[in-house]
Amino acid sequence: MTGPLVQIENLTVRYPLGGGLGARGVLGLAPTNLEVQRGELLAIVGESGSGKTTLGRAMLRLIPAEGAIHFDGTEIIGLGRRELAQMRSRMQMIFQDPYSSLNPQKTVGRTLSEVLAHVGIPRAERRARAEELLSQVGLGADAYPRLPRAFSGGQRQRIAIARALATGPDLVVADEPVSALDVSVQAQVVNLLLDLKAERGLTMVFISHDLGLVSAIADRIGVMYFGRLVEIGPAARLSRSPAHPYTALLNDSMPPPSVAAARATLEAAAQTGAVELPSLMDPPRGCPFAPRCGHASASCRETPPALHPHPAGGLVACHHPLNTD
């Protein structure tokens, strides 16, 4: 098979407002086009309210969405319940909070066996398969009979990863999989994901707020702002020469662990004005980043920029992209 594993066309999510009669909708995700190539690690980066989680969930049809999602050639938005259930085993999600994503009443073994049963593994083989999965994520077989509360946050996230792998997926969407973990444990879980991805030839969408982390591990990075994809391209290019002013702001906002560089970051942050996201109820006509942008012109406030190719690679939605030479 060739071509992208996932191809998304005009994927749009509207959240109902107020509910019930006469409800209006707000755009949680503006119409988005995106391809996820086979075997790549695509990172989706954004701050709260950027729509990154919405995109991840809509991609797996976990929330209602409009548009089209072609997964390995099959359009899944139009699929019925039964066909969707079959496709689901090929795409899995890992959530941020390892404490609420595991059922506290079920042993690790039971959680895994249920998933294995769901994909048709015969009863006799389930235990062996589950123990194999546990060892693959760096936990011993002794984890099998225990309840989630016996494990630390990092270990729980390993269990969640084992559960996601149990169906033998082609695509794993990991939504902030390490941000609830201690710094020294984060890298361990990221390494595990990288190893598993390499071993199994997985395609991975890694959703994160941490541009520094994903710059190190991703093949491509997509940056989201206010429900829109504003830039997407090779990871190295985005971190070295960002094209969208918002990507540049994200890049410059994280103080690195070095005194001189971190103090410079702080100086810059002190100069920037108050941070306000536009209102979802009353979205701006032009570019949503324009009110915070040092490069904004009249056209930015009037016309929303569409994604177009950037000379250094990737796509950017900006009327005045940076680093064009």
């Binding site: 444990v185 890298a187 690195p256």
Partner: peptide, 23 residues
């Protein structure tokens, strides 16, 4: 070890620097 981990970079083997075990 913390300072190394905080600089978030892949080593030659394509992995992040970690501290083994847990706090």
């Amino acid at each position: 070890d913390m300072i190394t981990a905080a600089s978030v970079a892949l080593d030659a083997g394509g992995r992040l620097a970690t501290i083994p075990g847990r706090p």
